[in-house]
């Protein structure tokens, strides 16, 4: 698509202005992370530290077993993402491509599961996991997600609904069964959306701390987010390590985003040709 010069300029201008809003607090985070304790709160604000203390990152990392936490976070993220992709895409496909009895009702239930705040279901949930003997393991964080979440099912359903029906009909004539139509025709076409789900799930799981906090007890089961929150005590907050670990925690989701960008574009050009 060709773009006129005027729109080009407007686009860049808008991007730069908005970048300030989105980037500035993040830059401030990085600058805080490399400051000394005496330089965080100054007035007039001190933008750059006297010496850049990159060692703060190493100190923060060594303050708790963050290697272990990273492993736990990776475990939870990989498992849940795999589960979401499979189960959520199945359900989304079921809801999007078929008319069946009870569809509206079942879809309402699906939506309803998003509507009750977590604080009131948490204690019953804790009781259930306790009964199953899953407290202080990573199971409560992984296993429920393997069945798919309403949020992602709804998202994928919306994508599927905006896809043309013609493919399915021609495939049916070719003798493909229902599951083959899903797996061979729609899954590849859904690739951008599936990658989107992967990225969104990764951000959510990676940063979720209430779940791991409540369902795990011992430090060896903590995820990164819980370790991060542990820098915030009841009476005092270790601001520099919080900033250091938050920044380190941003790296994997950003890498995932780069992969996503590449694939969205590839996936779409592939989909159109197919």
């Amino acid at each position: 698509m060709r773009v006129s010069k005027a729109t080009k300029i407007v686009t860049y201008l808008l991007c730069v202005v908005l970048s300030f809003y989105f980037l500035f607090p993040f830059i401030w985070m990085i600058l805080t992370a490399v400051k000394s304790e005496g330089e965080i709160f100054t007035y007039p604000p001190k933008f750059f530290p006297d010496t850049w203390r990159f060692h703060n990152f190493i100190d923060a990392w060594n303050a708790q077993p963050f290697g272990r936490f990273t492993w736990n976070s990776v475990l939870v993220t990989v498992w849940t993402t795999a589960g979401q992709v499979v189960s959520a895409s199945l359900a989304a496909y079921g809801f999007a491509r078929y008319q069946f009895r009870g569809k509206k009702f079942l879809f309402s239930i699906l939506l309803a599961t998003m509507m009750l705040p977590w604080d009131v279901t948490m204690i019953p949930q804790y009781m259930e996991f306790n009964l199953l003997g899953w407290i202080d393991t990573l199971k409560p964080l992984i296993i429920p997600a393997l069945f798919g979440s309403a949020y992602y099912i709804y998202l994928m359903r919306q994508f599927l609904e905006s896809m043309p029906n013609d493919f399915a009909e021609s495939a049916k004539i070719d003798g493909a069964n229902e599951f083959q139509i899903y797996s061979r025709i729609y899954m590849p076409m859904m690739k951008p959306c599936i990658i989107l789900v992967c990225v969104l799930n990764m951000i959510t799981v990676w940063n979720d701390y209430l779940g791991p906090l409540v369902f795990t007890n011992t430090q060896s089961k903590y995820t990164l987010a819980v370790g991060l929150a542990a820098f915030k005590g009841v009476h005092s907050t270790d601001i520099i390590p919080i900033m250091c670990i938050s920044i380190l925690m941003c790296i994997p989701p950003v890498v995932a985003f780069f992969i996503e960008q590449k694939n969205i574009i590839e996936g779409i050009s592939g989909g159109v040709k197919g």
């Binding site: 701390y209 209430l210 906090l213 011992t218 430090q219 542990a230």
Partner: peptide
């Protein structure tokens, strides 16, 4: 076995 909950102690 130590369990540390930081400022979310009450919730936990």
């Amino acid at each position: 076995i130590i369990e540390s909950y930081g400022d979310n102690y009450d919730t936990k």
